[in-house]
């Protein structure tokens, strides 16, 4: 017993170091796995408050830019209103009527990262306004990300620019689905993989969300095809997609809550169980 105590006293610094290292390593590993939410994240009162204040201060300097953005958006909406017939021709930016049951919650980005491999956004709405994990986030120009963690007043969002991000998407007007992923290189481009060779594609075609997930409604714009490759290993198409959204400058975003989500997931669960 004496010897054990002596050992502990002698190596207390080393033991403390190993303990703390163990804690931080387990937090790191946990943060890299997709299905677990993070324990340490920026959706909490302290960092939320700080980011909110920084963002408020910055807003003063970008008022002009934001006004211009809103004016452009306004002009586009007016155009849609005045030319009602055209609505069907260019629904690519509007929320399409998919017959789903979606709620839209308005929110604002208070912190945005885009220069690392696992990027996250922090937004200033949380549980109180009905934001929950796994809800879709879009801006007026297209998909932004998926809600990851929430607190009472804030939430973190997995940005599209995150190696963990994966979204079912399709070429607009067809039913050829693929997965939208990011290769971690350029903040302006993402990759659509696993598009079958049968698909008729050309550069410039619009990529939209597929209706297969419960997170996003169908036909929300993502970007347009920039380059077309053929994957050597799988013999499927890999498309380089130029994003409509400028992920480096995001401000007002909308959170899409699928009211039927619970019902759908419940149904899928029971189906899987029965198999």
């Amino acid at each position: 017993m004496q010897q054990i105590l002596n050992f502990i006293f002698k190596n207390s610094i080393l033991l403390l170091f190993l303990l703390l290292l163990g804690i931080s390593l387990s937090l790191t590993i946990q943060s890299h796995s997709y299905h677990k939410s993070k324990f340490i994240n920026s959706a909490n009162a302290v960092s939320g408050y700080t980011y909110q204040n920084i963002s408020d201060a910055e807003d003063y300097f970008s008022l002009k830019k934001q006004n211009e953005k809103l004016a452009t958006e306004n002009a586009r909406l007016k155009e849609l209103l005045y030319n009602k017939k055209d609505t069907l021709l260019k629904p690519n930016i509007n929320f399409p009527d998919t017959g789903g049951n979606f709620d839209v919650i308005q929110s604002k980005v208070i912190s945005n990262s885009y220069n690392v491999h696992e990027n996250y956004l922090t937004i200033n709405t949380g549980n109180k306004k009905g934001v929950n994990p796994d809800m879709g986030v879009v801006s007026n120009r297209g998909v932004v990300g998926i809600v990851d963690n929430t607190s009472a007043n804030y939430a973190t969002v997995i940005s599209m620019l995150n190696l963990k991000f994966k979204l079912s998407a399709k070429v607009k007007g067809s039913n050829h689905y693929g997965f939208l992923v990011w290769d971690g290189k350029n903040a302006g481009y993402m990759q659509l993989i696993d598009i079958p060779r049968l698909a008729k594609l050309k550069t410039g075609d619009t990529i939209v969300t597929g209706g297969r997930s419960v997170i996003f409604p169908e036909n929300i714009p993502v970007g347009k095809i920039d380059k077309i490759f053929i994957d050597d290993q799988t013999n499927y198409y890999t498309l380089n997609v130029r994003l409509f959204n400028d992920m480096t400058s995001l401000s007002h975003v909308y959170i899409i809550a699928n009211k039927d989500k619970e019902e759908i997931t419940e149904l899928e669960k029971t189906t899987k169980k029965n198999e």
């Binding site: 804690i23 931080s24 960092s47 996250y120």
Partner: peptide, 24 residues
């Protein structure tokens, strides 16, 4: 020193959403 280093790292992890990389 070890404890305070752990916490300054953890605070950075919190703000940057990096799990525990800064703390480690």
């Amino acid at each position: 020193l070890l404890l305070s280093a752990f916490f300054i790292g953890l605070f950075n992890d919190m703000f940057l959403n990096t799990g525990g990389a800064h703390a480690a």
